[in-house]
């Protein structure tokens, strides 16, 4: 509590509901998230991870309670609809992260370029800057998109399942890059199904329509919490996709 000035996200009893819905998708969220932290949001599909992200990006205002985001947010969505046939280089894609900083008539200058190259080197692709995006492997493409997020240079970085379907080598690089972002003083929030990944985080928030538990992984990742997080149909598999099958039966009322 001594570094209260550094708190970037404050939520108190925040509930989120989609327009017209009878019950909230996520309720009773109370969190204080400071910078320099790697936070993992753990929970089943439909548990509220993406809803919380939408709240954090400002797309969805809390229906009740308050959510305060004290710094700009950048967000890497889960479903990667980037096109491999679009004629751009890895560097061009990374430079898209600087779009919001510049008025429409200013093209990226030397500083933007060097920042983009630096971001690419943080994801281990410094030598592929001029390669066409479509010629990269799937994992490399995800790393370029992460570089684009890095270059946005926001104190808060949200990533929705950044490791899903990525080759182990790329996953390792991405993991390291996320820690690097954390070490820069940023608040890095990652949505994940991966309990192993969660164990290596600074803080874990377990979501299942509400905050089941939040805290350091040692405290939060108890079997009972996991049981509650993944509800009664617990088939606790580290692989995310099996949890999707579990959630199919889970209906809102």
């Amino acid at each position: 509590m001594q570094d209260r000035l550094n708190v970037l996200v404050t939520a108190s009893d925040a509930s989120f509901a989609y327009p017209g819905a009878t019950s909230p998708a996520l309720r009773d969220v109370s969190l204080d998230l400071p910078g320099s932290e790697l936070v993992i949001l753990l929970g089943p599909n439909g548990g509220g991870k993406t809803t919380l992200f939408r709240g954090l990006t400002g797309e969805l205002a809390p229906a009740a309670g308050t959510l305060k985001v004290h710094a700009p947010v950048s967000y890497l969505p889960q479903h990667d609809r980037s096109r491999t046939d679009f004629p751009v280089s890895a560097l061009d894609v990374t430079l898209m992260g600087t779009l919001a900083e510049r008025p429409p008539w200013r093209r990226p200058g030397r500083t933007e370029r060097s920042r983009a190259r630096e971001a690419l080197s943080r994801v281990g692709l410094a030598d592929r800057a001029d390669t066409s995006f479509g010629e990269l492997s799937g994992g490399q493409r995800r790393r370029v998109l992460l570089a684009r997020t890095i270059v946005q240079d926001s104190p808060i970085v949200l990533l929705d399942e950044p490791l899903a379907g990525v080759d182990p080598a790329s996953a390792e690089v991405i993991d390291a890059a996320l820690r690097g972002l954390r070490d820069d003083g940023r608040l890095v929030i990652v949505a994940s199904h991966d309990i192993e990944q969660a164990r290596r985080a600074d803080r874990v928030v377990c979501l299942n329509g509400r905050v089941v538990a939040a805290g350091p992984p040692g405290d939060a990742l108890s079997p009972s919490v996991l049981q509650e997080t993944y509800a009664a149909e617990l088939t606790l598999l580290p692989a995310g996709d099996d949890a999707v099958g579990v959630i199919e039966h889970h209906h809102h009322h």
Partner: peptide
């Protein structure tokens, strides 16, 4: 055109 899903974040 490249990545419609990321438009909001950008």
């Amino acid at each position: 055109a490249f990545d419609p899903a990321a438009a909001v974040s950008l």
